[in-house]
């Protein structure tokens, strides 16, 4: 009985269980030969979803209707601009990084300005912002493919003590977000807003200020992800953000964060991101065709969400 309540009170357990199971099944097929390779690849690729997922989770915590659909285009624009500015020069690394952050800041501010000033729902506001940002990326990029500075390319593809550097970056950011949500005043505020914006307002919380900060945070996480992704893959591409639209939302939901807001879950993002990558590689290893692979991915995701969506028994 106590074990059962432990399971239901920790919704992120499910995403880890699913990730473990998929990992084991894949290992069984390859007979353990790909142990290091698969693990490292998984951690590396999952890092990108973790970083964007963290931002998206903060926004989803704000409650029903809050979502940021401008994530993929922010990734693209941040990656494009940063790489073009650095122009392959390692000495300009910091400039590129801060340019990416500035793009995140600008997108976040504009998102909330649209939501607040024009009073349009976040789903529409961030989607329209996404078109503007994507168009800027196309206009700025013009098909150029600039190589990342050597230092950066090495950093993003290498590992420290067998753990990919990217996974360490994702870990650091996750600890920061965990602190933000669990320990900080700001986290208390956004959780309150997610449960009831009106009650939060009347409790003296600066609701608009906190929401603005959250949208800015989300866009900054996306721009950092874009910066790293472009460096990792040897250059920015105009479609590099596309898969992170659904991915960022999926990892949040599978990770056990309440879609209805007010309750979020950092460890779950990890489990879900690892799982999402492992499912694809498992089905690849077993040699399924593209169609079957997509259907199975969908079915597996639904199963995990069903298992994880039991209501939590205890208040926080």
């Amino acid at each position: 009985m106590t074990q059962l309540s432990f399971l239901t009170s920790k919704p992120w357990i499910w995403s880890f269980a699913a990730a473990m199971a998929t990992w084991v099944i894949t290992m069984l097929f390859t007979g353990g030969s790909s142990f290091v390779g698969l693990s490292q690849a998984t951690l590396t690729f999952a890092s990108f979803s973790i970083i964007v997922g963290l931002g998206q989770m903060l926004v989803i915590t704000l409650g029903p209707g809050n979502i940021d659909l401008s994530v993929p285009s922010t990734i693209t624009l941040a990656g494009t601009v940063a790489l073009k500015l650095m122009d392959g020069q390692s000495s300009w690394l910091l400039l590129g990084f801060f340019a990416a952050l500035a793009i995140g800041l600008a997108v976040g501010l504009s998102n909330y300005a649209l939501i607040k000033l024009l009073r349009i729902p976040p789903i529409i506001a961030t989607l329209s912002m996404s078109f503007i940002v994507q168009s800027s990326a196309i206009w700025y990029n013009r098909g150029l493919r600039v190589k990342p500075p050597k230092v950066l390319a090495d950093f993003t593809t290498e590992a420290t003590f067998g753990i990919p550097n990217l996974a360490l970056v994702a870990l650091a950011l996750s600890i920061f977000v965990w602190w933000l949500l669990e320990k900080s005043v700001f986290g208390r505020w956004i959780s309150a807003i997610g449960q009831s914006p009106f009650a939060a307002r009347m409790a003296g919380i600066p609701v608009d200020g906190a929401r603005l900060m959250t949208y800015v945070c989300c866009a900054c996480f996306a721009s950092v992800c874009g910066f790293l992704l472009a460096s990792f893959s040897g250059g920015a591409a105009l479609n590099m953000g596309t898969e992170y639209l659904l991915m960022s939302i999926a990892v949040v939901i599978i990770g056990g964060t309440a879609v209805t807001g007010g309750n979020s879950n950092v460890p779950g993002i990890w489990g879900a991101s690892l799982f999402m990558f492992l499912v694809v590689s498992m089905l690849n290893t077993y040699g399924f065709g593209a169609g079957v692979r997509l259907i199975l991915t969908g079915l597996i995701i639904i199963t995990v969400i069903l298992a994880a969506s039991r209501p939590s028994a205890r208040a926080r």
């Binding site: 309150a192 449960q195 009347m202 309440a258």
Partner: peptide, 13 residues
């Protein structure tokens, strides 16, 4: 329920 309590939270919070 309109503008008072936060239903997911404990009494303490």
């Amino acid at each position: 329920s309109l503008n008072g309590t936060f239903p997911l939270w404990s009494i303490l919070r």
